[in-house]
Design a protein around this nucleic acid. Structure first.
Lengths: 255, 255
DNA sequence: AATCAAATTTGACCACTGTCAAGTATCTAT
DNA sequence: ATAGATACTTGACAGTGGTCAAATTTGATT
């Protein structure tokens, strides 16, 4: 089995915590950041980046750790440098909806008011940089292009939540899973360019279920179903090969 | 039956079209706009408003008219002055998801890229002012408070789509309808302060169904159900009296 | 006021997906 | 390597909400 860009299978919490204390070697300078080209800060030139980097703090979380929790005071916004994160909301009886899977280059926490409106958890080991919300919003004055970039990303995000509403409200289980696979294909293409049809699925079946508004069992059955239809090949639970992504896309759109 | 703030029952298309040609008496000045206090332009002072108003065009649409269509070139952003609008997305086979109901003070069209990602239709007769997208985005330079306001409203909107995802993915039909009634109560309170428990429902059962990811029949059954439970009183299909909004809220949250 | 069309409600039935349970595979720890 | 825990898959059955159809109400048109 080829090496995954996520380390969901081999992550060791203890080692991760040690690294987190150590922090990133480029703590005070974002210049060496490996995710800069896809992050919000990619609009800053070398000079601006130097002063801007003082606003950021770098840290790391092991898989399954909470990054921030729903209803907690929203003091920071977070930018993912590597790894995978899930954002979720819960009903009082434990029913959960995952509102998004986030990867390198994605940020979260800006849309909240005084409290976080979701819980953010590490799916794999993640590297994150964090900014004070107030300060970064103020900094949009000094770095107008950054403000524009953040606004732009927020608009894009709003657009894709509308697609997700169409999925949740109107698609069948099969269409939902096909949509999910297409989404994951697109996201993984942004991060790692190997065979574009070889898609990593860092999250559990239960995460997928809570993202698609289904149960684990239904998700599992639909994986089996798509395999029987000859549309996908499974290599363990966390790696999928899309044998016919055109057909998957058509199914995803209900055609 | 008391008079509704929407004119969904008595609207006459012909008359509306005539009015639309006539446009608003305050066409070149937003000063007299009755929805200014709740609209995005409420951050502008009297001077700025005068020059800003030159960017806007006023018009009116009768109920059931399309304001802008999915996949159409996105040239404008729209601000609702009065009436109710629905935004929706469709699958190729006609399945529809309504992503939002909009009222006086709401705007739409900003989150789109080159094409509109939704169709906007008038539910009731609506008064709307329209801005050129490019020009208004440029104008954020001159009116920074306007840019902040729009950004802020976009963030709020993103937050509420997350709530809607939780609703669509994880709530039961009963919980969905209770949530809808609570949402409508809050929105109508913003526009018209009468008895806060007397809620106008300008949209059809079919619109509600497509908003909640249900069928018309299920929506109708749940209305009947809530009535039997003594939680609501119906005065026709478009006016609801919430007899116990606390209980409705609890049901909406799955408690 | 009368007629027709559209919207809403209600009923009967059923399918998709959920629930509960058991079996299998995978990962982690020793 | 072995054992235990966790994650995933599969099966049997059931229920919520969907489908189809008919009745009723509401609203528009003449």
């Amino acid at each position: 089995m080829s090496i995954s860009p996520y380390s969901y299978s081999g992550s060791k919490p203890k080692a991760s915590i040690r690294l987190a204390a150590n922090s990133c070697p480029f703590n005070t300078a974002c210049e060496g950041c490996s995710s800069r080209h896809i992050s919000l800060c990619n609009v800053l030139d070398s000079n601006d980046l130097k002063s801007f980097s003082k606003l950021s703090t770098d840290f790391q979380k092991a898989a399954k750790q909470i990054i921030c929790a729903e209803d907690e005071k929203a003091e920071h916004i977070y930018n993912i440098r590597s790894g995978a994160v899930r954002l979720s909301k819960m009903l009082s009886d434990g029913r959960r909806q995952i509102t998004g899977f986030l990867f390198a280059g994605d940020f979260f926490g800006l849309s909240c008011k005084d409290k976080y409106s979701f819980t953010a958890e590490a799916i794999t080991e993640v590297k994150i940089c964090r900014f004070n919300r107030t300060k970064i919003i103020e900094s949009f004055q000094d770095y107008p292009r950054l403000g524009e970039r953040v606004f732009d990303m927020t608009r894009t995000e709003l657009n894709s939540t509308h697609d997700q509403m169409l999925l949740l409200g109107r698609k069948t289980a099969k269409e939902k899973l096909c949509s999910f696979l297409i989404i994951m294909k697109e996201k993984s293409g942004r991060i790692n360019v190997r065979d574009e049809n070889e898609v990593d699925i860092p999250m559990s079946r239960s995460d997928i279920a809570d993202y698609l508004g289904l149960t684990v069992e239904t998700v599992s059955r639909q994986f089996t179903n798509l395999h029987k239809l000859g549309l996908i090949e499974l290599d363990g639970a966390h790696r999928v090969f899309l044998k016919n992504s055109k057909a998957l896309l058509a199914l995803a759109e209900g055609e």
